[in-house]
Design a protein around this nucleic acid. Structure first.
Length: 644
RNA sequence: GCUGACGUAGCUCAGUCGGUAGAGCACCUGCAUGGUAAGCAGGAGGUCCCCGGUUCGAUCCCGGGCGUCAGCUCCA
């Protein structure tokens, strides 16, 4: 028979061949499985009709197969060490795999080493995997007898006509849909990382199992890199760096609300200033609206029905109030304050004020998940035919912002969900407008069918940071419903009242969250224009104190954030302190510099820029700040110290 | 919200088998007046998360609460 292999052309095979034979014939190394159409198949499966794609660890699907088998190795090792342990589910994840297990006695992190050692044995034994199709009755009987009630439960939950398969390796057999590696010996590097609680099927009324996490790689080197990135992420953790750099803090009595210290507020204000500078030319109006409203408003907006669990509610003089989690209802009231003409559209209303959401206590996470936040939020009221141009303009804002931070973005278009409000004609129009705007500039995007909000389709933006981590950041949402609920109208050219469409958009999103992401992206070493302290002046000795003060004053008057460190310490000590605070420039002033009217400039990271005339230094900095220059290079490792 | 672990100086952590506690860094003072990542010496700093219980005595043991962390769930 003849099959088509992606990238390799057509291949002739003997009848009865398996995919493993095909791979062997081609001599392609490191193939873990194959994809035929939308199915992923093991190498021991017989060759079928259809174009074949070879999967290695470089493919997401290949990694999936690899780590799924690793989870079976984990289960096998656990059953050897704890024969009474009951297995639930054990899938691969993006970063590794886990297995949910009910142990006879709860295990702790200290028990992982022994399990890991047993896993190494299973790998070394290099068991081939075998796939068996079994009848429902057979499967139920087998897992009943094996003392695996969770597996029995899973089988019972399968549809009547489902194909049930088991996978066997050595003495271990597991209920599993597959697919898997052909042999356990391919797993060259694995490590168990963590054990945590998890409910069976996510049901918090059900039994609490223990989820054992691990990861696996085809080589030790790849695993090393993985753990290096994890260490690097830990080093950059904004929850640690933020307080260390004196940017913000949290207090027990205000969980989920940040204290912005002076330096952190500089960052915050710089971002808001950036946002304003981009939006003002586009005709945005900035407003400030109330932050507590009577429940009546939340009834109208639909928040009482859909968002009340996430709101702080209160009562005063017998009246119920809610603290605003979003600006949109207030902006609708603002729109309705006057009779609006089509001439005013699109009307762009921006607000940076505080928003409060009652996030559950267990979900709070530094600045990334807070209860009190500020967004670079805006609502655009428009005539439906303006949708395309508004979206395009807003895409431009997203581009500018993420280019400035050197973060690539990926666009997701979420289309109509099964349960939705509004005419399909409106949905057609809105989805078409979003697609047209994206197509206009030939942008790549991913469609997430059915993932839109119930009130309209949306664009979500995912940014990638310096460590390759992905963060959902900006959003552009089309909304037909709120204008209807608030009975908003404008008078059109023909004198008739029409209902506007509303676009909700946030470019940085929650500024709290965004700053959290930036701290980690830049490892706390912010580009010059954002740095809370941009220059620190270091007089060599007491004799230059006054000169340093004069230069600092001139810099500050020129709009540069400069300060003097004239502490009674040696220059090396103060240089080190400035480096640890990740200040972009240090300017040293000694006898020579005072006489020449210069400063000796050192860039963050240790680069010596030599002596520069004081006036030139100020002008250079002013230019770089004004242009939001992204240096000094901050995306690489900026610790620069103690690393070979 | 649920499960588990944790909560000692500003930070990182030690310690007390129940008798009210210590180091390094940071901070302050003095000496040293310094040239690109830690000069020397001294000092100050603690409600051992909070409330209750057991005990002659609780930072330590027990219960409850709050918070943080890791997950789950939720949200998107």
């Amino acid at each position: 028979m003849r099959v088509e292999v992606v990238g390799k052309g057509a291949v002739d095979l003997a009848g009865g061949s398996r995919y493993g034979d095909l791979v062997a014939q081609l001599g392609v190394p490191d193939v873990l499985a194959v994809a035929v159409g939308d199915r992923v198949l093991e190498l021991f499966r017989p060759v079928e009709e259809g174009q074949v794609r070879l999967l290695t660890f470089a493919d997401a699907q290949g990694r999936q197969v690899f780590r799924h088998t690793a989870s079976h190795v984990l289960a096998q090792a656990v059953k050897r060490l704890y024969p009474k342990a009951q297995l639930a589910i054990g899938p691969a994840t993006d970063e590794g795999f886990f297995y949910d297990i009910l142990f006879p006695e709860p295990i702790g992190p200290g028990d992982l080493a022994a399990i890991e050692a047993e896993m190494a044995k299973v790998v070394a034994e290099d068991h081939p995997l075998r796939r068996d199709e079994v009848s429902r009755a057979q499967a139920l009987a087998d897992f009943e007898r094996a003392g695996e009630p969770f597996k029995v439960h899973l089988i019972e939950a399968l549809p009547e006509d489902a194909l049930i398969t088991t996978y066997n390796q050595g003495e271990f057999t597991d209920l599993c849909r597959g697919p898997h590696l052909p042999r356990t010996g391919l797993i060259k590097a694995l490590r168990l990382t963590n054990v945590a609680g998890a409910y069976f099927r996510g049901d918090d009324q059900g039994p609490m199992l223990q989820r054992v996490y691990g990861t696996a790689f085809p080589s030790a080197a790849e695993m090393e890199r993985h753990f290096f990135l994890i260490e690097e992420a830990k080093r950059r953790d904004h929850r640690k760096l933020g307080p260390e750099l004196d940017l913000f803090s949290f207090h027990d009595v205000a969980p989920g609300f940040a204290f912005w210290h002076a330096k952190g507020l500089i960052l915050y204000e710089a971002l808001v200033g950036f946002s304003r500078s981009l939006q003002q030319p586009l005709g945005y109006q900035e407003v400030s609206t109330p932050w507590i409203f009577k429940t009546e408003l939340w009834e109208t907006s639909g928040h009482s029905a859909h968002f009340t669990d996430n709101m702080f509610l209160m009562e005063s003089e017998g009246e119920a109030f809610g603290v605003k989690p979003m600006n949109c209802p207030g902006h609708c009231l603002l729109f309705a304050e006057a009779t609006r003409s089509y001439r005013e559209l699109p009307l762009k209303i921006a607000e940076y004020g505080p928003l409060t959401r009652r996030e559950r206590s267990g979900t709070l996470h530094g600045l990334l998940r807070v209860r009190g936040m500020h967004q670079d939020d805006a609502h655009i009221f428009l005539a439906s035919e303006q949708l395309g141009s508004v979206i395009e303009e807003t895409l431009g804002l997203v581009d500018t912002v993420y280019a400035t931070f050197q973060m690539p973005i990926e666009i997701h278009l979420s289309t109509r969900p099964p349960s939705r409000m509004g005419d399909d004609a409106l949905w057609d129009q809105a989805e078409a407008a979003l697609e047209a705007a994206l197509g206009e500039e030939r942008r790549a995007y991913v469609v997430d069918p059915g993932e839109g909000a119930f009130y309209g389709p949306k664009l979500d933006f995912v940014a990638t940071d310096a460590l390759g981590r992905r963060w959902q950041v900006a959003t552009i949402q089309v909304d037909f419903q709120l204008p209807i609920r608030f009975e908003l109208h404008y008078v059109d050219r023909d004198g008739k009242q029409k209902t506007p469409v509303m676009v909700h958009r946030a470019i940085m999103g929650s500024l709290e969250r965004f700053i959290g992401v930036l701290v980690e992206h830049f490892a706390g070493a912010f580009p010059l224009w954002l740095a809370p302290v941009q220059v620190r002046l270091l007089p060599i000795s007491e004799a230059e104190r006054q000169a340093a003060g004069t230069v600092a004053k001139a810099l500050r008057e020129g709009g540069v954030r400069a300060e003097v460190d004239d502490r009674n310490e040696k220059i090396g000590y103060r240089i080190r302190a400035a480096e640890k605070e990740k200040i972009p420039y240090v300017a040293v002033i000694g006898q020579r510099e005072v006489e020449a009217g210069t400063v000796a400039v050192r860039e963050r990271g240790g680069k010596d820029l030599g002596t520069i005339a004081q006036g030139t230094f100020t002008r250079d900095l002013q230019e770089r700040i004004a242009s939001r220059w992204s240096g000094p290079s901050q995306l690489a490792d900026t610790d620069g110290h103690g690393r070979a």
